Amino acid sequence: MSTEPTTGHTEFIVAGQDTGSSFNLWDIYPAPTDPTRRAIMLEEAGIDAFDAFGELFTTYAATAQEAVHEVLRERRERAGLDHYALSGGREWGPALTSELYGGAGVAAATKDAAFGVAASALPGVPSFHVRGLPDRCAASTRDRVRAGVINSGRHWPMACVRVEVTPLEPAGKDVSVAGASALDLALACSVLVAAGQIPCGCWSDVALIGELGLDGAVRTPRRLVEAVQGAAAQGARVILVPADAVDDVDIAGVRVIGVASLHEAVELLSDERHPLRPTVADAHHPGRGLPARD
Rank of each mutant, 00 (worst) to 15 (best):
T6L: 14
V218Y: 00
V106Y: 03
A195F: 02
S261R: 06
T6C: 04
G148T: 00
Y84L: 12
A252H: 04
V241P: 09
L269V: 08
G54H: 02
R78E: 11
T279P: 03
A49S: 13
L122R: 03
A171E: 10
A113Q: 06
D82R: 08
E264T: 01
H69Y: 10
D135Q: 04
F23N: 02
H129E: 15
A171H: 06
S127K: 00
P157Q: 10
D48H: 11
V165C: 10
A186D: 06
A107G: 01
T36W: 04
V106E: 04
R73S: 13
D294C: 05
Q65C: 05
G89N: 13
A231G: 05
E11A: 05
L72Y: 05
G196A: 05
W156M: 14
F115H: 13
S181Y: 12
V238W: 00
G80H: 08
G93S: 15
C137K: 00
A292V: 10
D51M: 15
F50R: 09
G235C: 05
D282W: 08
A113R: 04
G93C: 04
E164G: 07
G8R: 12
G54Y: 05
C189A: 13
S21H: 14
I209H: 04
P134E: 14
G103Q: 14
T59Y: 12
A159T: 10
I47W: 12
L56Q: 04
T3K: 15
A79T: 00
P278Y: 04
V145S: 03
V228S: 01
A138C: 10
L183R: 11
L81K: 14
A283N: 06
G54V: 08
I198D: 01
E70L: 10
P291H: 04
H9Y: 03
P278H: 02
A245D: 14
S127T: 03
G20H: 09
Y29W: 13
G124C: 00
Q17D: 02
R37I: 02
G172H: 06
T220R: 09
G210W: 08
R222W: 08
G196H: 12
G80A: 09
A114R: 04
P286D: 03
Y84V: 11
D112G: 10
P278S: 02
R288E: 09
G46D: 06
V256F: 02
D184K: 04
A186I: 12
F128H: 08
V71R: 08
V280C: 12
D294E: 15
E66G: 13
A188G: 08
P170V: 12
N24S: 06
P35Q: 07
E74R: 15
H274V: 00
I251Q: 07
P170K: 13
Y84K: 11
A121T: 15
R273G: 14
A121Y: 04
A114E: 02
R146P: 11
L290G: 08
A108F: 02
L269M: 09
A232K: 05
L268D: 06
L214Q: 04
G148L: 03
L276N: 05
V238D: 01
S190W: 09
L133R: 07
P5D: 10
T58A: 11
V218G: 00
D34Q: 09
S140E: 10
P32L: 09
Q17I: 14
D294A: 15
F128S: 07
P5V: 12
V145P: 07
W92G: 05
I251H: 09
S204F: 09
S181A: 15
R90M: 14
A62E: 15
P32Y: 13
V191T: 03
R37H: 11
R78I: 11
R222V: 14
R255N: 03
